[in-house]
């Protein structure tokens, strides 16, 4: 059972304004656990700190305080050296997450070789083909293409295959479909869901879209300015939101059934809502 524990994470950024420095708290004491077969959704607006959390988990940033602990099957802590064998990330923009200079094959062979999933080039090429088949891409047709010869959906599938290549058990998906055309978004999300079932993956799904968060995750954490304001099982958080900020987000989502409803939301209401104490459905209900 590979589980990832995010413990009391804090991240401060220093902002230079003229000569003086100012501190911005991007992540404010956030804790949660990712366990196999389960998806946790981090929901929030831009600037809520959700991408910063993803980058800390992917070790692209160091936390100011708190830690991310990865435990392997026996419950022992995974060493830093092996961390990236287990934790991988799918980025938001499939148009920039693949190197325009390299072929699809390069993007898959490198992680396979780096993480000991393949010893020789030939073995890596074969496994790269298998990975492409698993994300529903015609391997033979696509493996020598460069990113610009693929559609957005195909690129994101390659990016997912790349994240799986090291044999990762924890996948951080940072807005994996928000840059894709709407008609292919569900396809990619369903692909992730299928791979999760097959591999018993732990998934962190980061999004600003409440609807897909509800349908594609088990638990939802709502973030506002780096703080978790509400957390709980997906349906409870969305269908019976208890925190005013979550209610605000839900009310602001477009709703075809609610034509002609009033639109009154102002900035002051958002700030006031964000200040309310956090709500945890599992503890407080």
């Amino acid at each position: 059972m590979t589980t990832l524990d995010v413990q009391d994470l804090v991240k401060d950024f220093r902002i230079r304004t003229g000569l003086r420095g100012r501190r911005l708290r991007a992540v404010d004491h956030v804790s949660f656990t990712l366990s196999p077969g389960r998806t946790v959704a981090l929901v929030g607006e831009s600037g809520s700190g959700k991408s910063t959390i993803a980058r800390i988990i992917a070790r692209l940033e160091r936390p100011t305080a708190g830690q991310v602990v990865l435990n392997d099957d026996d419950g022992g802590r995974v060493s830093d050296r092996a961390y990236r064998d287990h934790v991988q990330m799918v980025f938001q923009d499939p148009f920039s997450s693949l190197n325009p200079f390299h072929t699809v094959e390069h993007h898959l062979i490198r992680p396979l070789l780096l993480h000991g999933q393949a010893r020789t080039g030939a073995e890596a090429r074969e496994k790269a083909g298998d990975l492409l088949e698993r994300v529903n891409l015609p391997a033979r047709d696509i493996v020598h293409r460069r990113p610009h010869e693929l559609s957005g959906g195909q690129r994101q599938r390659v990016a997912i295959a790349r994240a799986l290549a090291p044999g990762a058990k924890v996948i951080v998906a940072d807005e994996p479909v928000s840059m894709l055309d709407v008609s292919i978004r569900l396809g990619v999300l369903n692909l992730l869901a299928r791979l999760q079932r097959e591999e018993n993956l732990a998934v962190l799904y980061i999004t600003h879209d409440l609807a897909t968060a509800r349908h594609f995750s088990d638990d939802i954490l709502v973030l506002y300015r780096g703080r978790v304001v509400e957390r709980g099982p997906a349906d409870e958080v969305i269908l019976a939101p208890r925190h005013p900020y979550t209610r605000l987000l839900a009310a602001a989502s477009p709703d075809p059934e609610a034509r002609g409803r009033s639109f009154d939301i102002d900035a002051a209401a958002v700030v006031a809502a964000g200040e309310a104490p956090a709500y945890d459905h599992r503890i407080q209900s």
Partner: peptide
């Protein structure tokens, strides 16, 4: 992101 992805891949 492709450079970040390479870092995450452990290059």
């Amino acid at each position: 992101e492709y450079v970040l992805a390479a870092r995450v891949a452990g290059e």
